[in-house]
Design a protein around this nucleic acid. Structure first.
Lengths: 139, 139
DNA sequence: AGATTTGCTTGCGTTTTGCAAGTGCAAATA
DNA sequence: TATTTGCACTTGCAAAACGCAAGCAAATCT
């Protein structure tokens, strides 16, 4: 059991207490955009997270109801990680990060494509993506 | 000079490399919502950031163009910290964090009030607040 | 002139991170 | 059936970051 110590009653602070580190939102990103879902998939991401850190972040995110484990349809040895409703609700936040980054960094072509879609109709994109992410979720 | 090492080309990752720690967004929050501006003001925030960490984060944020130092009108001993355009552009992100937190935490009355205003007309709130924050900025 | 305020810096012990290697169970292979 | 491989972690340890207290120089107050 990882203990979460709230630094204050501020909502920003409380949120950062859960996912405000260098890795957690990358895990959320993978679950949102790359659709990567197994432990090994996270390890394969470009940023090369250390395996012990990954395990610790997954536990933290699960304990705080952002993600859930599910049985992998193919094998008992594999674990499927999915976003919960609470996790999917981070989508608008992730989109804003992308939009900010779009203004100040050069985005890779594939992500740029997604952002252009967002720019056309943000609300619509969020609706569609949320529905997609919530498929087959049994929180 | 604090060195920023990019973990990957991903925009989320690059953004987190700058402000993706437990403290940076709290500094941005203070500059956005509490209007706290001096070094001492940051130290007085509820979360009680350590002074060396504060100094290091302020330097990082300044080097990455999120904040700037300005002369304090009252005294040469004081330093005024302000958000740059790049910093102010984090407002939509901060709002989404607040909205997320509003759904999953209990907000303090004062912040709740702001969020209700946001809910009425998000775009309008952002326009107004952005204009307010950009007053007297000489990036 | 002496004391206080302000914005930091320095030292040092504790915690977190990062890397490599190891473990246990499931599944594929021989 | 025996053995190797794959997968999801755990463990150990060195390195880095953090957190606390004290110190410090310049500006300001008394």
């Amino acid at each position: 059991m990882l203990d979460l110590k709230k630094r204050s009653e501020c909502p920003i602070s409380s949120s950062l207490d859960i996912w405000g580190d260098k890795w957690s939102l990358l895990i959320v990103r993978d679950l949102m955009f790359a659709k990567q879902c197994t432990y090994g998939d996270f390890l394969k991401s470009d940023e090369k997270i250390a395996t012990n850190i990954l395990a610790s972040r997954l536990q933290m995110l699960e304990e705080n109801g952002i993600i859930t484990k599910q049985d992998h349809p193919d094998s008992k040895a594999k674990v499927l990680y999915k976003l919960t409703q609470k996790g999917v609700d981070l989508l608008p936040l992730m989109i804003e990060i992308n939009l900010w980054a779009d203004k100040y960094f050069t985005l890779p072509a594939e992500r740029k494509e997604m952002i252009e879609e967002v720019k056309k109709d943000k609300e619509d994109f969020i609706r569609g993506k949320t529905a997609e992410l919530l498929e087959h979720i049994d929180n």
